[in-house]
């Protein structure tokens, strides 16, 4: 079973950067090293119609102070967010730096908002479906508490279409959670 939803994304990240174009949600196994199924890969991801910024300094995702309306914005600017179909949890993330620089290490700040404290992010990884390979590194996930996470060791070494995966689990048992809630959120990212 594969569910698709429209990204609540700011839509663009600038040239040479990540562009969130959509997200998919799927019911798959808990193992982060598991290969995505062909069904998942067959699901189309529509490119965002949003324009690209050619000047990162005017890109609000890069430089909030450049936009007076965002100058006092106290919360992080998320690159994209997703709400689970049942509304039990909401996941959002932003890369650091934003935009992502091809072939340079970056980090991710993620936030999982839920009234259920047992729901958590258990792994993060990325893959290039057209290339049949993933990242060359193994990122580290740090649980900062209060639903906040920091992921280190991300590296998109090639230009092209990347899928960024977050594994979301409920409690200790992946199997119990499988019946009720989806487990893997997939964000689509394009690097030039």
């Amino acid at each position: 079973m594969v569910l698709e939803t429209v990204a609540k994304s700011r839509g663009f990240h600038g040239i040479g950067a990540a562009m969130v174009v959509g997200m998919l949600l799927s019911l798959v196994g808990c193992d982060p090293s598991a290969e995505p199924t062909s069904t998942e890969l067959a699901v189309p991801v529509s490119p965002s119609p949003s324009p690209r910024s050619t000047n990162p300094s005017t890109n609000p995702s890069t430089n909030p102070s450049a936009n007076p309306s965002l100058a006092n914005y106290s919360e992080p600017l998320w690159a994209a967010e997703f709400e689970s179909p049942t509304g039990v949890w909401r996941l959002r993330y932003r890369p650091i730096p934003d935009p992502i620089v091809r072939n340079e290490l970056f980090e991710i700040d993620a936030e999982l908002v839920s009234s259920d404290p047992n729901i958590r992010i258990t792994a993060v990884d990325a893959r290039m479906p057209e290339h049949l390979h993933g990242m060359t590194l193994r990122p580290e996930l740090h649980d900062l508490g209060d639903g906040r996470y920091r992921i280190e060791g991300m590296l998109f070494h090639m230009a092209g279409f990347w899928e960024l995966f977050f594994w979301v689990e409920h409690g200790a048992s992946c199997i119990e959670q499988k019946a009720a809630e989806p487990q893997r959120v997939r964000f689509a990212v394009v690097l030039e």
Binding site: G134, M135, R138, E140
Partner: peptide
């Protein structure tokens, strides 16, 4: 980058 190296 060394910290994130693992056999893949």
């Amino acid at each position: 980058v060394l910290r994130f190296v693992a056999p893949r």
